[in-house]
Simulated scan of single mutants.
Amino acid sequence: MLINKNLVTLNLKAKTKEEAIKKLAELAQKEGKIASVDEYVKCVLEREKAYTTGVGNGIAIPHGKSKTVKEAVIVFGKTSDGIEWNSLDGKPVNLIFLLGVPEENVNNVHLKILSQLSRKLMNDNFVEILKRAITIEEILNALSDIRVS
């Protein structure tokens, strides 16, 4: 399973993208999805230097392939305080999807996850569901059809 209730936070307290990525990575570590928060965060921040993952509309999809990732994972964070992310539209981010995949990423799992998620995020109704969600179950239901198979 890519995401579960322990990989969702609706009250993310972070002032910077680095802090947000670290806090979400800590959730992944608690669930046994990654071995080292520091190593994984370093990998994700390297990707951020190459190009922003702030895709616009208040959404960011930071991600990274790393040997510290034990199995593919999606961690979702929502914050009421917008976080500066150098987004494509120049606006702050409130919805963050942290994706992690093992370095030996067979079958391009990260591309499959990114593709499915990106397709869903093009749907304004889907984005509204995420923005209005007040329970973890609402988030899990919205993301329930994202698969790696």
Rank of each mutant, 00 (worst) to 15 (best):
N6R: 02
L7D: 01
V8N: 02
L10E: 10
N11R: 13
K13A: 11
K22G: 08
K23G: 06
K23Q: 14
L24Y: 03
L24H: 05
K30N: 08
E31A: 03
A35S: 13
S36E: 11
V37L: 10
D38F: 05
V41N: 04
V41D: 09
V41K: 03
K42V: 07
C43E: 15
C43Y: 12
V44A: 04
L45A: 12
L45T: 14
E46I: 03
R47H: 13
K49G: 04
K49Y: 06
A50K: 15
Y51K: 09
Y51W: 09
T52E: 07
T52R: 06
T52V: 10
G54Y: 04
V55W: 00
G56W: 03
G56F: 00
G58N: 10
I59A: 06
A60K: 05
I61G: 05
P62C: 03
H63D: 10
H63M: 10
K67D: 14
T68C: 10
V69Q: 01
V69A: 05
V73H: 00
I74M: 04
I74C: 01
G77T: 01
T79A: 08
D81P: 00
G82D: 09
I83K: 11
I83Q: 06
W85D: 07
N86S: 13
L88P: 12
P92M: 06
V93E: 09
V93W: 00
L95K: 11
I96Q: 06
I96A: 03
I96W: 01
I96Y: 02
L98W: 00
G100E: 07
E103F: 12
E104P: 08
N105T: 07
N107Y: 11
V109I: 15
H110T: 02
H110N: 08
K112S: 10
K112R: 14
L114M: 09
L114D: 04
L114G: 04
S115Q: 00
Q116H: 00
Q116N: 03
K120I: 01
K120L: 07
K120M: 06
L121T: 07
M122C: 13
M122R: 13
M122L: 14
N123D: 15
N123I: 08
F126S: 12
I129A: 14
I129W: 12
K131L: 13
A133S: 15
I134T: 14
T135W: 13
I136Q: 10
E137I: 04
E137L: 13
I139G: 11
I139Q: 12
L140D: 02
L140A: 08
L140Q: 06
N141H: 13
N141L: 15
I146D: 10
I146P: 02
I146L: 15
